[in-house]
C-alpha cells in the first residue's frame, strides 16, 4: 500500500536534477564514537552539488550523528571522537589546522526543533551577516529581505520584522531558521528532520522550499518520513545498524532516490521502504 503512494510521487516528480554530477562533499570511512560507543561505522557517501540527498533509516541508527559530522557539530559533544575524513570541495575538514568556524559558515544547519533566538525577526536573520562584519543598515535590509523571500516567509512577516521570532507559529519559526541559515549564503545546508515537529501544511511548505533552494544550494536532509524522502530528494542513503551486538549504524545502500524506492538492491532497504521493517 505504502509502495503505490510512493511510486506515484516518483512518477510525478520532475527531473530537475543536474545530469552532470558534481561532487560537493565526500564522506570517507567515517566512524564517530561517543566515548567507547561507536555510533556510526565506516560510512562512505558522496554528496552531489545542487541536489537533495536524503538520509533515511530507523531510529537510533546514527542519521543525525552522520549529519552533524558534516559541519563538525559533533565536536560540541563531550567525549565525541571522529575517525575517517569528510571532504568539502576536495578539502579535508577533519584536519588539525582547519578553521571550524569557517566550515560552519560554509555548511549551514537547520535543526529538528525550530530554534530562533529570542530576538526580533529582523535580528534573527541579520545575526549571521553581522557575525561576518556587515553592519550597514541598507545592506542588512537587503539581505534580510532576500533571505526571507527565499525562505518563503517574507509575505507573512514583512510588516512585523521587529516582532520577536518566537511570536511566529512553529512552521514559520522553522522557515525563519532556514532564512537565518541562508542569510550567510552557505554552500551546503544540513537539515535534521526539519519538519518532524510541524503539522502537514507547514511540512508541505518546507518541502516546497527545499525544492526551490536546491537550485542554489546543496541540501542534505535527515528524515524519518519515507514519503518525504521520496517526494523531495534526488539521492537517498539508507542507514541501518550494521552489527546488532555493537549497535553501530552505517550506510547500507546509496543511490538515486527512484532506484532506492523502486528497485532497492539490499533486502533490508526493500523491507524498510515498503514498510515491512521490524
Amino acid at each position: 500500500m505504502l509502495m503505490t503512494s510512493q511510486v506515484s510521487f516518483l512518477i510525478n516528480k520532475k527531473h530537475e536534477k543536474n545530469d552532470e554530477k558534481t561532487l560537493k562533499m565526500k564522506i570517507e570511512n567515517l566512524s564517530v564514537y561517543y566515548r567507547n560507543f561507536r555510533a556510526i561505522e565506516m560510512v562512505n557517501l558522496p554528496i552531489y552539488a545542487q541536489s537533495i540527498t536524503a538520509i533515511i533509516g530507523p531510529s537510533g541508527c546514527g542519521k543525525s550523528t552522520l549529519l552533524r559530522a558534516l559541519n563538525r557539530m559533533n565536536d560540541l559533544v563531550p567525549g565525541a571522537r571522529t575517525e575517517g575524513q569528510v571532504f568539502l570541495d576536495g578539502m579535508p575538514i577533519y584536519v588539525p589546522n582547519v578553521d571550524v568556524v569557517e566550515i560552519r559558515r560554509r555548511i549551514g544547519m537547520v535543526f529538528q526543533r525550530p530554534n530562533p533566538f529570542p530576538k526580533s525577526i529582523y535580528d534573527n536573520v541579520a545575526y549571521g551577516p553581522r557575525l561576518l562584519g556587515i553592519h550597514s543598515r541598507a545592506k542588512l535590509d537587503e539581505i534580510v529581505e532576500r533571505s526571507l523571500l527565499a525562505a518563503a516567509l517574507w509575505d507573512e512577516v514583512n510588516d512585523k520584522l521587529d516582532q520577536s521570532g518566537l511570536s511566529l507559529s512553529g512552521g514559520q519559526q522553522q522557515r525563519l531558521c532556514i532564512a537565518r541559515a541562508i542569510a550567510i549564503q552557505p554552500e551546503v545546508i544540513l537539515m535534521d528532520e526539519p519538519a518532524s515537529a510541524l503539522d502537514p501544511i507547514a511540512t508541505l511548505k518546507i518541502e516546497e522550499l527545499m525544492g526551490a533552494l536546491k537550485k542554489a544550494y546543496t541540501i542534505v536532509i535527515v528524515t524519518h518520513n519515507m514519503q518525504q524522502a521520496a517526494r523531495v530528494s534526488d539521492y537517498t542513503a539508507m542507514m541501518m545498524l550494521s552489527d546488532q551486538a555493537e549497535r553501530s549504524g552505517t550506510v547500507i545502500e546509496f543511490g538515486e532516490t527512484e532506484q532506492i524506492f523502486l528497485n532497492p538492491k539490499d533486502k533490508r532497504t526493500e523491507d524498510y521502504v515498503t514498510g515491512r521493517f521490524g
Binding site: L76, V101, R104, R105, N115, F117, G128, L131
Partner: peptide, 18 residues
C-alpha cells in the same frame, strides 16, 4: 539555557565568545 540556542549560534559560524 537550552542547548539548541548554543547549536544555532555555532552552526551559523559564531565563535564560542560570540
Amino acid at each position: 539555557i537550552p542547548n539548541s540556542q548554543r547549536e544555532a549560534a555555532l552552526a551559523m559560524g559564531a565563535t564560542q565568545w560570540e
